[in-house]
Amino acid sequence: MDTFIRRSQAGFGKLTTALTFLSVFVGLLTILELKLGGVSYIGAAFDNVEPTMRWFDTRMFGAIDGNRKENARFAFDMDVDLTGLFNWNTKQVYAYVTIDYDTMSTSSGLINQNSLVIWDTIIESPDRANLTMKNARSKYSVYDIQSAFGSLNREVSISLRWNIQPRLGFLSYGVTRSKNQMKVVLPRKPRSKTRSAKRVVSQTPPVETSS
């Protein structure tokens, strides 16, 4: 009995150590495989990005102390193939569209850098990783720290980012290369409480990617 328990304890200890090293190895191998697979060269094409602005006065939409907050929603076309993000250790891919823009902080005079998620999806199978969407609506209504969002003629850029959730190991992140450098000028002010805004889109010529 004595030797049996001692042996099983020692065996269990060895097993734990071995599994720990194996997990780290699997994690590193997966990262290496993704890097070699060229996941940082995946391109995404955006088009027809149309913002609409509304006022909201609930806390859920960023309004505090009764000051209403300017919220933006977007319609957009997107074409991207994320099949390359899937391998034997991919549990799911979280794909998210963000808008990024800079502002000047009114209090400190510092430059603020801002990113907001306007749309996301969870992909659990490579069969569903090809995303082609026409006139898709953003899932989330987004707002800035300041109460006015669009009224400063603010220019935002749109991009698709991804996060790979492995079955075991390290989470990895990346951003797709935009085939069209899409910049959108947010309209100046919501005209009414319901719907508003004319879109202004400035689009630089498509940039060829070497993928």
């Binding site: 400190s108 510092l110 430059i111 998620v117 987004v142 996060n163 992140y173």
Partner: peptide, 30 residues
């Protein structure tokens, strides 16, 4: 932290920390 990161945060009112994803991110030098 980056947009899309999954973070573990504490709120004063709850004892158990929460694991959720960052969906809005604003930063400057401070």
């Amino acid at each position: 932290v980056n947009i899309g990161d999954v973070v573990v945060y504490d709120t004063g009112s709850r004892t158990i920390p929460i694991v959720h994803r960052v969906v809005h991110e604003h930063h400057n030098a401070n």
